[in-house]
């Protein structure tokens, strides 16, 4: 798939808009899963993913994709950055209004999957957006530390540091929940 994506990206750079549909069709499922796990909200995930695809298209058609990384990794980076920006905006809105938005659960997927998404979102709620991204990319998406560092454009040390802090927060939260059980 990687070579094909590279080929399609080159076609988009030459002005072939239809080639971009192939890129979207080949990558929408994993990228949607990434966005939905990062944001915990199907409606927001689709909006952010669409925005990320438009950004990617603009970059490709203006020949701003350097080709240093694989198209898939590059798209992961764009989606993760768009989701991080969205999370930060949402947090500052929540702080000013004191009300967290209720997740919209009308996207496709089984009831169990939507329930699990809600559980994942609640569990990761206390993490900063950067920590949440590292946990999702590494522990959920199964990326290696160098891959996560490439997607987040940071050092491998920074990835490990965020992961350690995130794990400590998650452990604290779980211990607190268990101690409150009757």
């Amino acid at each position: 798939m990687s070579a094909d994506l590279q080929l399609q990206a080159a076609r988009v750079a030459k002005g072939d808009r239809a080639a971009f549909r192939t890129i979207v069709e080949q990558t929408q499922v994993p990228l949607h899963r990434l966005a939905i796990r990062l944001l915990g909200n199907p409606a927001e995930a689709e909006d952010v993913l669409q925005e990320a695809y438009v950004k990617a298209f603009r970059a490709l058609s203006a020949d701003r994709f350097s080709g240093d990384s694989a198209v898939q990794t590059w798209l992961y980076r764009i989606v993760t950055n768009a989701a991080l920006d969205h999370m930060r905006r949402r947090r500052s809105k929540e702080k000013s209004s004191d009300a967290a938005p209720e997740p919209q659960m009308d996207g496709a997927g089984s009831a169990e999957a939507r329930m699990a998404l809600r559980e994942l979102d609640a569990w990761l709620q206390d993490l900063t957006p950067d920590q949440r991204a590292v946990v999702i990319l590494k522990a959920v998406e199964g990326m290696t530390t160098p891959e996560v560092a490439e997607v987040l454009a940071c050092s491998e040390g920074a990835v490990e540091q965020r992961l350690v802090r995130a794990r400590a927060t998650l452990r604290e939260k779980r211990d607190l929940t268990e101690s409150q059980k009757p």
Partner: peptide, 13 residues
């Protein structure tokens, strides 16, 4: 891992 598997079938609309 359990939550990853449980959210694997979430698809775009």
């Amino acid at each position: 891992g359990r939550l990853r598997d449980a959210t694997a079938d979430l698809l775009p609309s």
